[in-house]
């Protein structure tokens, strides 16, 4: 999927379409490239696998799961963005990053040929959080950057805490 570049809100030239997953977290719609997902699991089905972080200073990471001998931190997307509290039911385990997303539900799958650049007026953390904006018939939805939520600094601190003691959930 192309990341839109210099021109405001103009996508790159039409390319082949790639699937995206539109999900809801904290009542807000977001999207993520389907190729960034390794696995989608219900929270119920993960209950036996997840470990709780005992000293989570990061309130939006409460659990870890193991995949391929690596610890993935489960980020509550609603809590991370300060969205209204909801009852998440799904965990999206991401591919290639040590992060899984706790979300309310999958809204739909869709296909996009490009995403629109975030307007330059947006100059905060959102430039790291999002790859850009996906335009659907019902509006613009931020396209989550799989590498954008947990920084290396976050991971370093979380690793230190995880070593300090994880207990089964």
């Amino acid at each position: 999927m192309n990341r839109a570049g210099q021109l405001q809100g103009k996508p790159a030239a039409a390319q082949r379409q790639e699937p995206v997953i539109v999900f809801v977290a904290g009542g807000a719609q977001m999207a993520i490239p389907a190729g960034a997902l390794h696995e989608i699991r219900s929270t119920d089905s993960l209950a036996g696998e997840a470990a709780m972080l005992q000293r989570a200073d990061f309130p939006w990471v409460r659990h870890t799961i193991e995949r391929g001998g690596t610890t993935h931190y489960v980020v509550s997307v609603g809590s991370y963005f300060g969205l209204p509290r909801t009852r998440p039911s799904l965990v999206l385990v991401l591919r290639g990053v040590r992060c899984a997303l706790l979300v309310d539900r999958i809204e739909r799958m869709d296909a996009l040929s490009s995403i629109y650049a975030l307007p330059r007026a947006f100059q905060g953390d959102e430039r790291q959080w999002y790859l850009g904006l996906a335009l659907f018939e019902d509006g613009a939805v931020p396209m989550l950057n799989p590498h954008g939520l947990l920084t290396s600094e976050h991971l370093e601190k979380l690793d230190a805490r995880a070593v300090a003691g994880a207990v089964p959930a």
Binding site: A28, M30, F81, G82, L83, P119, A121, F122, Q123, G124, D125, E126, W129, Y130, L133, G139, A140, V141, P142
Partner: peptide, 13 residues
């Protein structure tokens, strides 16, 4: 359309 961000003064797109 609104989404989470940290830039002051912006409502959305």
């Amino acid at each position: 359309d609104k989404f989470p961000h940290t830039t002051p003064g912006l409502d959305g797109v």
